[in-house]
Design a protein around this nucleic acid. Structure first.
Lengths: 249, 249
DNA sequence: GCAGGCCCTTAACCTATGTGAATTCCGAAA
DNA sequence: TTTCGGAATTCACATAGGTTAAGGGCCTGC
């Protein structure tokens, strides 16, 4: 993990996220833009955050891709969330409690950092910022709930399709989906299985089905959805849960 | 649903919960005790909160038992959380966003209510109260994660056992487990299945196993764990996740 | 250029869990 | 007391998905 103090303009990534969930005064926008004074860089598969650590700052994923997971006593694990640029790595700072999960960078990733004292100052001047952060937390929660809904009762095919739709949706919101409907998806099939509660082999089987149907192509860490609407229809994907009741504005 | 304005002393239930996660000044304690000015009563199976509603107040379950759930497009549903006295019904108020799930009372239940403006006043005078609420939210999140861990990869027997251990633990913290290790558990086997991602029939099979092994007896809406330690050992139950990194104090 | 290792893919086989349906149990309503 | 309906239980059977194993592609280090 490397560290730098560049005054990067990557604050834009976070600003875009917050602006999407709450109205921000221009002062608040400026504060957010210049808030992530430190940036940490992680190599592929490196821990961004470790179970049991106390989280003394806000960490925002700026570039790359990451996931959270928790181990089972038998050594297997459950991935509980995927993080895309703009996402906060862990909300433990809200309650000054320890993080109870691991956060892992998937490809090389960058994480912006913000001290809690700094945050307190920003929030005092611009209370909307806290509302935005809390809304991000609510969306996170809602996303995890939907994963539970998937794992608890959708068929394997629907689980996979639903997750692809979700990633497509989330990544499109941060301009990471190109015109052909392709986006980088640096996961391994086994990792996707760890998220969806399916074995690697079975993930593969269902990916083949989607490929044969012309609904999804996964090659070279890249996924292409030739017909997103058809894929959404297949699994009844409804992105409402990703907005968590936050009105458009 | 009935309503009253009694100045009930049920604030104690909430105080106990908050005191368990954060240090409270005596002023804060007094404020909490007298905060839940309105109490609503629900009959069995009545909605406490409905999907899509905007949540204009804090709702604390004071008596009874409840659960949250979300429907699947095919009409089945996933129960995402069980609520015991002291739990906040929905944390949507934190971000002024709509609740995205249904909350249902199981047996007759009482819910204390607190306006957001009131809350704001309390928090301004006693900021620990907000910390406590946020810690409750973190514990909730952690509990849901653990459910995902169960559903995503534990065997049916372990899922059932783990949930019984969790309820035993949580209910014991609010003095709802008696000396013999019995506690009220007003669920139907089918409802437990909706939470654990298992069919009614299979829940029943595993309950039989636990009964035969002398690890759990479920009769008349009451569960008895004759040997909680043995049950915990069976499923490697570790209540750490229910404390969400909050240090004992 | 070669060896090792990870990942994807496929196949054969197995089992945990679902489904459908019948039976019993039990509490609440009449 | 009788009736009724939901819940628990049990059985027979069906299947989605897991497991194990093997081969191939590809990258990386040597």
């Amino acid at each position: 993990m490397m560290m730098e103090s560049t005054f990067s303009n990557s604050g834009k990534t976070w600003l875009r996220r917050l602006a999407a969930v709450v109205s921000l005064s221009s002062g608040a926008q400026a504060a957010i833009l210049s808030s992530l004074t430190q940036t940490r860089h992680f190599r592929a598969r490196e821990h961004i955050m470790r179970d049991g650590t106390r989280d003394g700052s806000v960490q925002v994923l700026l570039r790359g891709f990451a996931y959270r997971h928790r181990y089972r006593p038998d050594g297997t694990r459950q991935i509980t969330a995927f993080l895309v640029p703009g996402d906060i790595c862990d909300f433990g700072f809200l309650s000054h409690s320890a993080v109870s999960q691991n956060v892992i960078a998937l490809p090389a990733s960058s994480v912006g950092q913000l001290d809690l004292s700094q945050l307190a100052g920003m929030v005092e001047k611009h209370p909307e910022i806290m509302t935005g952060i809390l809304r991000c937390a609510a969306i996170e929660q809602s996303t995890m709930q939907e994963l539970l809904v998937s794992v608890g009762g959708r068929t394997a095919l629907h689980r996979v399709a639903h997750m692809l739709c979700e990633m497509h949706y989330r990544l499109s919101k941060v301009d990471l989906v190109d015109a052909e409907g392709s986006f980088g998806f640096p996961l391994t099939q086994s990792e996707l299985g760890d998220a969806l509660g399916l074995s690697t082999v079975h993930i593969n089987r269902k990916i083949q089905v989607l490929r044969r149907e012309g609904l999804a192509i996964w090659r070279d860490k890249t996924i292409t959805l030739p017909d997103p609407q058809a894929l959404r229809a297949l699994c009844s994907f409804d992105p409402t849960y990703l907005r968590a009741g936050v009105p458009a504005h």
